Amino acid sequence: EVTIKANLIFANGSTQTAEFKGTFEKATSEAYAYADTLKKDNGEYTVDVADKGYTLNAKFAG
């Protein structure tokens, strides 16, 4: 089991951190699915991958 950390950075400057656990593939998929649920209210996002894929920095356009 691994933990994927998602740093969510919103256009207004606020941030949120979420963690997803499971296999690498499952946890990564859940992190992206969570970011997708936030698109409606926060706009499209881009992701910078860090820490060999164990940290995802998602920046929302607003």
Rank of each mutant, 00 (worst) to 15 (best):
E1A: 10
E1L: 14
E1M: 14
E1K: 09
E1S: 11
V2S: 05
V2N: 03
T3R: 07
T3M: 08
I4M: 03
I4Y: 02
I4W: 00
K5E: 04
K5W: 10
K5H: 09
A6W: 07
A6H: 01
A6G: 03
N7Q: 08
N7E: 04
N7V: 15
L8T: 02
L8S: 02
L8K: 01
L8Q: 01
I9M: 11
I9Q: 08
I9A: 06
I9H: 10
F10P: 00
F10A: 01
F10I: 02
F10Y: 06
A11I: 09
A11L: 08
N12C: 11
N12A: 05
N12R: 05
N12D: 15
G13E: 04
G13D: 04
G13Q: 05
G13C: 10
G13H: 06
S14I: 13
S14K: 14
T15M: 14
Q16T: 11
Q16S: 11
Q16R: 13
T17G: 05
A18L: 15
E19K: 09
E19G: 04
E19R: 09
E19A: 09
E19P: 02
F20S: 00
F20G: 00
F20W: 05
K21T: 13
K21Y: 13
G22C: 05
T23H: 06
T23F: 06
F24E: 03
E25H: 09
E25N: 09
K26H: 11
K26C: 12
T28R: 09
T28E: 05
T28L: 14
T28G: 01
S29R: 14
E30M: 14
E30W: 07
E30F: 07
A31K: 00
A31F: 15
A31M: 07
Y32C: 07
Y32M: 09
A33T: 08
A33K: 11
A33E: 09
Y34A: 03
Y34L: 08
A35F: 15
A35C: 15
D36N: 10
D36G: 04
L38D: 00
L38K: 08
K39I: 13
K39Y: 06
K39W: 04
K40S: 10
K40P: 11
D41M: 13
N42T: 03
N42A: 11
N42E: 11
G43M: 03
G43I: 02
E44K: 08
E44L: 09
Y45N: 00
Y45F: 08
T46S: 10
V47D: 01
V47F: 07
D48G: 08
D48E: 15
D48H: 12
D48F: 13
D48P: 01
V49Q: 06
V49P: 06
A50Q: 13
A50D: 10
A50N: 08
A50H: 10
D51N: 07
D51I: 01
D51E: 08
K52Y: 14
K52T: 07
K52V: 06
G53K: 03
G53C: 06
G53A: 03
G53I: 03
Y54D: 02
Y54E: 04
Y54S: 04
T55C: 06
T55P: 00
L56G: 02
L56K: 02
N57C: 09
N57E: 06
N57H: 09
N57D: 05
N57M: 07
N57S: 08
N57A: 04
A58D: 02
A58R: 02
A58T: 09
A58G: 03
A58W: 15
K59C: 11
K59M: 12
K59T: 14
K59Q: 11
K59D: 04
F60W: 05
F60A: 01
F60S: 02
F60V: 01
F60R: 00
A61P: 07
A61D: 11
G62R: 06
G62A: 08
G62F: 08
G62S: 08
